[in-house]
């Protein structure tokens, strides 16, 4: 399956999940953030630049679907995608464990930065520390679970294109297709 198609499907599915499924499966006010999946996917596969763009627009969408300050999630997701993109581009090989660590740390980072931004823009930040601990961290871990499942699933789908590398998760695409992809990107 081609990368643009995978990206498109991932974005559409995750946006629909964020709008519909996420509120329905919230536990004690903690709803998973499905938009983390496409942002991390783009950041890990296409680098900091493309990841930052994906992070900004997905974060903006999250802000517009919620009731908090607009730009808060856009900022935190852009920073996260940039960092993930930079780290991923410097890793020669990414194991499942690395994907798991990336998902958990990125999710925690996004939730905590977003929490701090919301806290700073509030009229009264009373009780914010408790919300950071009892809302942001559980939400981050909840989101990380779905991010891990999503990223590994997408990795397997992408790996189908690379029969010579069956264990590779999204290692990319068939090496024969690389030159064509490069020319298309140019």
């Amino acid at each position: 399956m081609s990368k643009p198609l995978v990206y498109t499907i991932t974005f559409v599915v995750c946006i629909l999940f964020q709008a519909g499924i996420s509120p329905a499966i919230s536990v004690a006010g903690c709803a998973p953030d499905f938009l983390l999946i496409p942002v991390m996917l783009v950041a890990m596969r296409s680098g900091a630049g493309a990841g930052g763009i994906a992070g900004f627009f997905c974060g903006l969408l999250y802000d517009l679907m919620g009731a908090n300050v607009i730009g808060g999630m856009a900022l935190s997701m852009t920073i996260m995608a940039m960092i993930v993109g930079l780290l991923a581009s410097n890793l020669n090989s990414t194991s499942i464990a690395t994907v798991v660590v990336f998902a958990v740390v990125a999710s925690l980072f996004v939730e905590l930065v977003y929490g701090i931004i919301v806290m700073l823009t509030a009229i009264d930040a009373g009780g914010a520390a408790a919300v950071l601990v009892f809302h942001s961290i559980p939400t981050a871990l909840y989101s990380a679970v779905f991010a891990i499942i999503g990223l590994l699933t997408i990795g397997l789908v992408l790996a189908d294109d690379a029969p010579s590398m069956p264990a590779q998760l999204g290692g990319g695409m068939n090496r024969n297709k690389m030159p064509r992809m490069k020319s298309r990107l140019k």
Binding site: S46, G47, A50, A88, T94, G172
Partner: peptide, 15 residues
């Protein structure tokens, strides 16, 4: 060993 990141594209300097 897995390679989730795509080395070739992450080095695009324009972005």
């Amino acid at each position: 060993g897995l390679s989730f990141s795509n080395q070739n594209q992450s080095r695009r300097p324009g972005l």
